[in-house]
Amino acid sequence: MLTRLARVRRAVGLERRPPASCAIRLVDAGSCNGCEHELVATGGPHHDLQRYGFAITASPRHADVLLVSGPVTTRMLPALLRAYAAMPEPRLVAALGDCPLGGGVDAHPDEVAGPLERVLPVDIRIPGCPPTPGQIAEGLRVGLAALPPERRPW
């Protein structure tokens, strides 16, 4: 298994990236699971988000970026706000996919509180339905790099 993976790594041949450091916490606020699948794939050998120094963390306390997917359902809104409240300053919010950006497939208006912008200040936007792993990695990297230096996590 290890030798097979070594072959994959050589075949994919990813470059080392300029060093950075950023911790990301995902909140699924009603997505179709597509963004989650692609975010997981971002950590795999083909994309390897960790080589950027990016890590998905287990707790919002550890996170610099709150990554939100889904159209923000009414039932997830309190949990989403609690996750934001749990983060230490300074904190950033990123919208993952079309749903939190308001452009996704519409849900019943009674059941959603979104788009994300209506409930939290959005700093980074990663469109797509769902964005591919490559688009997620680039979206995060470029989005973070575009921030003024004092707001950048690293």
């Binding site: 909140v27 707790s59 919002p60 306390r61 309190p78 949990a79 609690r82 409240a85 749990a86």
Partner: peptide
């Protein structure tokens, strides 16, 4: 901040 309880109150 409140204790983090996976989004629960």
């Amino acid at each position: 901040a409140p204790i983090w309880l996976c989004g629960q109150p």
